[in-house]
Amino acid sequence: MRIVGLILVVILGSVLFYGSLAFPPWGDPASPASSHLSPYYIEKAMEDTSVPNLVTAVLADYRGYDTMFETIVIFAAGIACIVLLRTFKETESGSRLYRHIPTGITLKIDKKGRFPEDSVVFERIDSHWVPHDLIVKTTCRLIVPFIQIFALYVIAHGHHSPGGGFQGGVILGAAMIIYAIAFNLRSAIRRMSERSAVMLSSLGVFIYAGTGALCMLFGLNYLDYSALAGLLGVDPVTARSHGILIVEIGVGIAVMAVIVTLYYNLASAGRHDEGL
């Protein structure tokens, strides 16, 4: 198998090597990829949408359908992960570990026993428990708000600098993940429950699709944001810029919620009790 794979890879590789001789030289400004459609985007994007970052302008305005269905793919991936993994069964033994904080004694309570509430005295712990780490937890508590503010900046400033809904959404999700790793999965789920994560991911897709439908309601094409000029009280060019911002916020919410959902399900194998 190893030999067959190697031979196949070498054959395919040499075919591709032969094909690469017909490519234009690397960095050629007159190459076919750079000479048909993209000059229009580069020269006209500023006049059409007043967005200096060409990638954002093309992403959310000229190729809005593409991005909308990409967002739906991400949403579908989150739902698929829940369908595959989420289970409501207890673990085989059904027992839980609790720690009595003043004395430091660990109690194992069986399925039939009465589980105490989480309080100052009793704390539920994971089976792979590590002692309370002051440095990690304090650093995480200090750094999470800054990560979230940076993510909001990335979403809001995507028009003028690298960034946008996808990146900002992933960073927001990563802030939640770092919280879940430094503390534990249950406290992260208390902050942002599974239900609200799913609701937020569908809300993000709804904002995107709803903006498109709103444009249709004002008599122009689907996702033609210049239709929103009357509603926002600005000229059509600025309206396209604002429409891009609205759509990016939708993308950011959806991506953030899906990343968090994926992490919850993967880290606990669908049981949502013990995390990484």
Binding site: Q167, V170, I171, A174, I181, L262, Y263, L266
Partner: peptide, 15 residues
């Protein structure tokens, strides 16, 4: 590059 730094190096490694 920004997307890859946050997605590929951050989130997918955690996953």
């Amino acid at each position: 590059a920004f997307t890859e730094a946050s997605v590929g190096a951050g989130v997918s490694t955690v996953m």
